[in-house]
């Protein structure tokens, strides 16, 4: 009767939008990129939108450079997103707190080196084999520190120039409690560049700033207690999406699918800070169609990345 003990194909994930690597001082252990990739592979997560924790906590420029450098060093090739996913067979179609965890380097010569390794592939690093484990493709995510956003436009230009399509904001750990001038500025500049925003924190706090811009937003910290508010916003904002991570009630995912459709949900595990199985099991047992499950497990993110290229 213990079916849940064994991972099933309905738990396989095409895109995980919420993954980090690097030190996190308040966490008992740190996870380097290799450890994170191995964990993702064991959990049958095929692609991850990922960035260094350094950009959230210490230096956005150094963190962005670290992300691109680390990802470039994991593979020597960088095929276009759509092609690489098509090559990966049926699963590629989706077959199957107050801040993290809870929930360019400026255009210098070093940046130029990074650009050469990663940029041509639309920011996508090819999956690779890992000692018998399934391959994991990595998609670099950039960030801008909202505590010092004066030079954000230049930073965003550098990220876009390096093929980075997604910008993650860390309002929780950076103490941004509402719509500050820096927050509004960065959001405006990112949306103007067509970047997908990965937004932490309470969606009620940031939804109004993000609305009415045609923004593509993924809320990373939607708690099931706030689902009613999210749905009220999402009905009029087709670009608003949320991860299923904290939609833990027996009908949370189902209610989003019934109300606004599966296209406004994506999978984001917050690896390495959260257990993955609770989230994949909830998706597996959700009373939704296989097609909707495939969209949530990666189809939506795949389409969004292709659109952003």
């Amino acid at each position: 009767m213990a079916d849940w003990l064994t991972r099933s194909p309905e738990e396989h994930i095409l895109y995980d939008v919420d993954v980090l690597f690097g030190p996190w001082p308040s966490h008992p252990t740190d996870s380097d990129l290799a450890t994170v990739k191995s964990h993702l592979a064991r959990s049958h997560i095929q692609n991850a939108l990922i960035l260094s924790t350094q950009g959230a906590l210490f230096s956005d420029q150094a963190g962005n450079t670290e992300t691109l450098t680390a990802l470039a060093n994991t593979s020597s090739s960088a095929p276009p997103t759509s092609r690489s996913d098509q090559e990966r067979g049926p699963d590629a179609a989706g077959g199957g707190s107050g801040g993290v965890p809870g929930s360019s380097a400026s255009p210098t010569s070093r940046a130029g080196q990074v650009h050469g390794a990663v940029g041509a592939g639309g920011g996508r690093v090819a999956p690779e084999q890992q000692g018998g484990q399934p391959a994991v493709g990595l998609v670099p995510v950039g960030t801008v520190d909202l505590r010092d956003a004066v030079g954000a436009a230049e930073q965003l230009d550098w990220l876009v120039g390096n093929g980075v399509r997604c910008l993650r904001l860390f309002t929780g750990v950076q103490g941004v409690l509402g719509e500050t001038p820096a927050y509004k500025y960065v959001v405006g500049e990112a949306v103007r560049r067509g970047m997908v925003l990965l937004q932490d924190g309470d969606p009620r706090r940031f939804g109004e700033v993000l609305a009415g811009r045609g923004a593509e937003v993924i809320f990373l910290d939607l708690h099931v207690y706030l689902l009613g508010d999210f749905l009220l916003m999402a009905k009029s904002e087709p670009g608003f999406r949320a991860t299923t991570r904290m939609l833990s009630s027996p009908d949370g995912i189902e209610r989003v699918v019934e109300t606004v459709g599966a296209r406004q949900l994506v999978f984001g595990s917050r690896t390495p800070f959260m257990d993955i199985s609770p989230q994949t099991l909830r998706l597996r047992y959700a009373r939704i169609s296989p097609e909707d499950r495939a969209l949530i497990a990666g189809g939506n993110m795949k389409a969004l990345l292709e659109k952003a290229v």
Binding site: W4, L5, S248, S249, P250, D275, I276, S277, P278, Q279, T280, L281, R282, R284, Y285
Partner: peptide, 16 residues
């Protein structure tokens, strides 16, 4: 915490 939370969440913690 069922039925506030689906039991699969805690079962996933146990599995991991």
């Amino acid at each position: 915490d069922s039925t506030l939370i689906d039991p699969c969440i805690s079962l996933g913690v146990i599995r991991d």
